[in-house]
Computed example of a mutant assay.
Amino acid sequence: MHKPIVHHIPVCPFCQRLEILLALKGQPNAVEFRVVDITRPRDPGLLARTRGTTALPVMELPDGRVLKESLVILDYLDETVPGPVQRRPDPFEHAVEQMLIAKEGPLVTAGYRLVMNQDRGQRQPLLDALLGAFAQIDDVLLAHSPEGDFLFGAFGLAEAVFTPIFMRFWFLEYYEGFELPAGPNYDRVRRWRQACLAHPAAQQTSREQVIKMYYDYALGAGNGALLPGRQRSSFVFEPHWRTRPWPPAEKYGPSASDAALGLV
């Protein structure tokens, strides 16, 4: 029996949430993951199947039908792959789950805008926007799960959505010196984040990998784009990220060369 095919980038947070879901279901091999190199032109055949869009992940079903958007694919896999269903069975709890998941978009936008910012003068308003997004998540958690670590007693669908984002925000700690402040607006979301990061189903990537591969994001170049004076993206697969030196944490000064980054 043919498996669905998921075209993905290993270090992409939106792809990792699918891997987390399959780990929670005990079915890590339920789909075939095919790696896409975003530093090269996209395969014309894949572009034809996705109707010209390049965002990943994309899932092809055995009969040729295609699904896009990670949250859509996540729901489909949760319903169709054998194993414990991760969405809450109770309608109200599932609604709460969806209310929390709705906060993911603003958090992602705020975090990526901050890491990609190149203007020191804009740093504070961007930081304020990120803190505001965290505070809104904290508010939902306090309203519906003030005492526990997770939203509903155990790591579930909402945690699978947010954990890869919390992991990518290691680049904010490294390149922006970002830390969640202490205090009532952030204490609950901090506890949730810590529990999510430690969960055994969510260990597909590491802090070192994120920081090394997202160096170009910290200089304002995303999705494999090349910076001036550079010939290779920090997202290349070779040399392997483990063999590269740690990049400079100072993002507002001169950028490192390909050689300094261990890319050649």
Rank of each mutant, 00 (worst) to 15 (best):
P84S: 02
L67S: 10
Q124I: 13
A195C: 05
A201P: 00
P13V: 07
L18K: 07
G148N: 09
H240C: 09
Y175K: 01
A182L: 14
F237V: 11
E32K: 14
N117T: 04
I5L: 13
I101A: 11
G224A: 07
T109R: 15
G253Q: 08
G153I: 09
G229N: 01
P28T: 08
L226S: 05
N185V: 08
G183S: 12
E147F: 12
E19T: 10
P125E: 08
E176M: 15
S234K: 01
W241T: 11
P10Q: 12
K251V: 13
Q98P: 04
F237L: 13
L22K: 04
D128N: 09
L74R: 00
G64R: 03
N29Q: 14
C15H: 11
R168D: 11
V96H: 08
L100N: 08
G52V: 13
V31A: 00
R87D: 06
M213P: 00
T50W: 05
D258A: 11
L22V: 05
P184M: 06
F162C: 01
G105L: 14
L18H: 08
Y175M: 02
E19H: 11
R123D: 12
F237G: 03
V115D: 03
A160N: 01
L157S: 13
A154C: 12
L130V: 08
D43S: 15
A143S: 15
P28A: 07
D128P: 00
L226D: 05
E69V: 10
S70K: 12
I9Y: 10
L131P: 03
R244W: 09
P228C: 06
P57V: 13
A95E: 07
A259L: 08
S206T: 14
G26Y: 02
W192P: 05
A201G: 02
A260R: 10
A225F: 08
R188V: 09
E79F: 03
R190M: 12
L77Q: 05
D43W: 13
E159P: 00
L107Q: 08
D78F: 06
V161C: 08
T243G: 14
M167H: 14
G105A: 15
S255R: 14
V96R: 10
P91H: 10
P248K: 07
Q27Y: 02
S233Y: 09
K212F: 12
V140D: 02
G64T: 06
V85E: 04
L263T: 06
E159A: 01
G45P: 03
P28H: 08
L77R: 07
L157T: 12
H144L: 05
A23T: 02
Y175P: 00
Q231P: 02
P106A: 06
P184L: 04
P84K: 05
D149Y: 08
G183H: 14
P228D: 01
V81C: 04
H7T: 05
F14I: 07
L219C: 11
I9V: 15
Q194M: 11
A133Q: 10
D139N: 09
F169C: 03
M99P: 06
S233N: 06
C196N: 12
R190Q: 15
F169L: 11
K68M: 15
R190L: 14
G224S: 06
L219D: 02
G222T: 14
I211F: 11
D128C: 03
P10H: 13
A95I: 05
L127E: 07
R88G: 06
P4N: 09
P239E: 02
I73A: 04
N185A: 15
C15G: 15
